[in-house]
Nucleic acid binder design. Structure first.
Lengths: 350, 350
DNA sequence: TTGGCAATCTGTAACGTTTCAGTATATTGC
DNA sequence: GCAATATACTGAAACGTTACAGATTGCCAA
């Protein structure tokens, strides 16, 4: 048996969710007219339009998503594609909140599409496109030559990337200016007299790894400091790995007196490694670190900190996808977030 | 004009997504038969069934979600309802990952439904129920008398709560045994000779606030220690507030020599406040803290730590909702996670 | 032979929406 | 005064799925 009420079309029982048919019955109009009136179609009389919209508001009419989706193919869904194991935690929720904030004022729902263990990052994208499960997609962990971005461009589905690509293709993105971050960080360290600097890099292969490395190198030559290579780990490595490798590095004769770190959690490991080697932050070494939540200064007040706002990133990304869906030019939906100043929480004379 | 191909029903062009009609054409059967065959209905011949399923797999048939949803009312969606501003960050992403993990092997999608600024927590629930946007719901920040749980029970939508309620109503939940956590924490502190203990509580009003407070009180009388009241802040307060209030507390004549803290971020503030007052962790005070990601020991090795696994919570919650949707008894879908042992990272003789 | 029945399979309708191709009525041009 | 036209509205069809109520076939008992 059908799971719904058996009397077909009982407009009197107010219990069921109102549909266009309900509205048509109440206003004495046809469903077509009601449908058009609700979306302000020009061929509907002004008064009729107002009347329909009034009644719709009164009885709390909400278009049935399945109906719309089946008929039009529009899902009213934005998908955020996440790597289940690599994404650093706190930053994910900030992005989600940022995206939500923007979608809240729209008919769009946010669905989280995970991809896990050494799976092809293209898999979830293919799934979304093939099943038509979303009108727009947001991806992160963007690479210079990103198969996912290319695929989505080819298939004409609007998307935005967290981080830029470098394939000569134009698409919406939001990025933090990691080049500028690295430059400012090096300048700051140099200004404190640090001359032998090491960089704890972003994950190799991601676009912002290159940005950061380049900014670091550019600034090194600008200030005339030298680099102590530290490429055995990145912020994607485990806390333990970073810690032990750092300790090894710091026990060598030629060791850095300054670090630039691209993530807060990695910085914790970095400091631990430094202290394992018997050295002291603020005396033997200084560190400039990015962070996304305001906690690092509690960890060690000697840390020099630059904030990266992932909530903002989420909002920008959502706005970009919506803009593209809305017909804006992809090239006009790109934004770059400039790092704020380097923050110090402890006077150097303390 | 229709946005789709104009020739109606061209089974030859392999470009469009296959539907039941496509399968019916290819197998020479009727759509009804195909539909039934795919779901292993008994009145379909065994060979036909195999044949249909083979073809379906070959051409990569996937049921159209909108079609199913419109016809059956089933959305194949689970909604995770989140407070956009209060939820501690890292823990949210862990839950999401946990939920995703379980949903990955099912046809279910995960949608994140946020509610923000001093909004009624019931609003998003009402929205979900009224618009029929999900087959199941997961909520957190559960209260002893939780309007959301009551509402969902009344409206017959399956859900699971992160944390228990106390209304005499039965529903699926997953909870961490915070009573046991507080008990173990107090015992540990007492075992180290700490006699004047303070509790940095969970947010007042949430169920696990009560559990924690009770466990703390029970253990205090068990070990014969006394409580130093510290109820001006909870882990929901800002880092700065916790820090200053802690410093104030620690400057008083009668001050705690041991703390139990319900969250990692709050513990950072706690330690900062203690050190602001010129006291030293491990010497003047000891702290047992919960954490959800494995970082606190890097912050201060003197910290005593109990892990809470939010990823597990997410998985359990997802399993519970799916179980309820699948017809299991709500009472059989409740789980309690017992705290592991208190972890120490620095020998007391160090 | 015929009636009954089990085993398979099928057509139709409906879920709620939008688009297409109208229809009916009033208005204008000449 | 009459055709042409603009204005306001409407029914039918379709998107892909499932439930219901048949339809067809073969087989067996009487």
């Amino acid at each position: 048996m059908d799971r719904r009420r058996t009397e077909k079309n009982d407009e009197t029982s107010a219990k069921e969710r109102p549909t266009l048919k309900t509205l048509a019955f109440m206003t004495g109009l046809g469903v077509t007219t009601v449908s058009r009136a609700l979306k302000d179609a020009p061929e509907i009389g002004a008064e009729t339009r107002r009347r329909v919209q009034l009644v719709a508001k009164q009885i709390g009419y909400r278009p049935n998503r399945a109906g719309v989706r089946l008929r039009t193919g529009r899902t009213n869904v934005i998908s955020l594609v996440l790597n289940t194991e690599r994404e650093i935690m706190s930053f994910v929720s900030d992005i989600i909140y940022g995206v939500s904030e923007v979608l809240a004022d729209t008919p769009y729902h946010l669905i989280v599409t995970p991809y896990s263990r050494s799976q092809d990052p293209l898999d979830p994208i293919r799934y979304l496109v093939e099943t038509g499960s979303a009108d727009g997609v947001i991806i992160s962990r963007t690479q210079p030559n990103d198969a996912r971005a290319r695929y989505m461009l080819e298939h004409g589905i609007p998307f935005a990337t967290h981080g830029r690509t470098d394939m000569g293709l134009v698409h919406p993105y939001h990025d933090f200016d990691n080049h500028a971050f690295a430059v400012e960080a090096v300048r700051r360290l140099a200004g404190m007299g640090r001359r032998k600097l090491a960089l704890l890099t972003p994950p190799v292969g991601l676009t912002y790894h290159g940005h950061t490395v380049n900014g670091f190198a550019d600034a090194l030559s600008e200030v005339g400091a030298t680099e102590i290579p530290f490429s055995t780990v990145s912020i994607d490595h485990s806390i333990e790995q970073i810690r032990t490798r750092t300790a090894q590095l710091m026990r060598r004769d030629v060791r850095p007196d300054g670090f630039v770190s691209s993530a807060a959690a990695a910085t914790l490991a970095l400091v631990a490694g430094i202290e394992d080697a018997g050295l002291k932050l603020g005396r033997d070494v200084d560190i400039v670190s990015k962070q996304s939540s305001d906690l690092l200064h509690l960890f060690r007040p000697e840390l020099l900190i630059v904030n990266e706002n992932f909530r903002l990133a989420g909002s920008e990304l959502a706005r970009s996808v919506l803009g593209w869906i809305g017909g804006a030019a992809p090239g006009s939906l790109q934004s770059l977030s400039v790092p704020g100043e380097v923050l110090a929480y402890k006077r150097s004379t303390d």
